[in-house]
Simulated assay, not measured.
Amino acid sequence: MTLLEYDEAVHRRLAEPIRERLRYADAWAAARGHCRLDERLLAILEVLADQFGVGAAGRRIIDLRLTHTHLAAATGATRATITRLLGVLRRRHLVGTVGTGSEERICLYDTPSAVLPAVGPGPAVDGAQRRRQQR
């Protein structure tokens, strides 16, 4: 009989963090799998909001200092494309910001993901993706 079989409390303390980490990794991989860049960005922001979000009056504030460069690296886009997409998402009232300067945080407005409108007339493609597609 192993220690984990013997002591249920030890098993719970070890298994739950591992299970939670696997759920997070799975959600991150699913978010990165979206073909449309706007959907990928929203999905990644959702994962971050689930992990680090603080609820406040119809929105979840992602309590991390995220730069457009961080989001570009996470989505595989350019910083300029992320800046443009965040502007579109702000105008559609899907995301916003609170605070200023180094205290600025991105927030997601509580909108069911099933009814999120598509951003733009077609797939959002950044310049690097467009050049790869043209080759």
Rank of each mutant, 00 (worst) to 15 (best):
T2S: 15
L3T: 11
L3R: 14
L4G: 02
E5Y: 04
E5A: 12
D7P: 03
D7K: 13
E8P: 12
A9R: 06
V10G: 01
V10E: 08
H11K: 13
R13Y: 09
R13W: 07
R13F: 13
R13V: 15
L14S: 00
L14Q: 03
A15M: 14
E16I: 05
P17D: 07
P17N: 08
I18C: 09
I18K: 10
R19N: 03
R19W: 03
R21C: 00
L22H: 01
D26L: 10
W28G: 00
A29C: 00
A29R: 06
A31N: 03
A31L: 08
G33C: 03
H34N: 04
H34P: 02
H34L: 00
D38P: 00
D38M: 02
E39S: 14
E39T: 01
R40Q: 03
L45N: 05
E46N: 08
V47N: 03
L48K: 11
L48F: 10
D50H: 09
D50A: 07
D50C: 02
F52V: 00
F52L: 02
V54T: 04
G55H: 10
G55I: 01
G55Y: 13
G55W: 10
A57M: 06
G58W: 06
G58M: 09
G58N: 08
G58R: 06
G58S: 02
G58C: 05
R59C: 00
R60I: 07
R60M: 10
I62E: 00
D63L: 06
L64E: 07
L64Q: 14
L64V: 06
L64N: 02
L66M: 04
T67S: 15
T67W: 11
T67D: 01
H68D: 13
L71H: 06
L71R: 08
A72D: 11
A72S: 05
A72N: 05
A73Y: 14
A74D: 13
R79L: 02
I82Q: 03
R84D: 13
R84Y: 12
V88G: 09
V88E: 15
L89K: 04
L89Y: 04
R90D: 05
R92L: 09
H93Y: 10
L94E: 04
V95W: 05
G96C: 04
G96K: 04
G96R: 05
G96I: 04
V98C: 06
T100H: 12
T100P: 01
T100W: 06
T100E: 12
G101F: 12
S102V: 13
E103W: 09
E104F: 00
R105H: 10
I106N: 01
C107K: 03
Y109A: 01
Y109W: 12
Y109R: 13
D110K: 09
T111R: 12
P112G: 07
P112I: 03
A114E: 15
V115D: 15
V115H: 15
L116P: 04
L116N: 05
P117R: 15
A118K: 11
V119M: 12
V119H: 07
V119L: 11
G120I: 07
G120M: 10
P121R: 13
Q129N: 01
R130Q: 14
R132N: 04
R132G: 06
R132T: 12
Q133H: 12
Q134Y: 02
R135H: 07
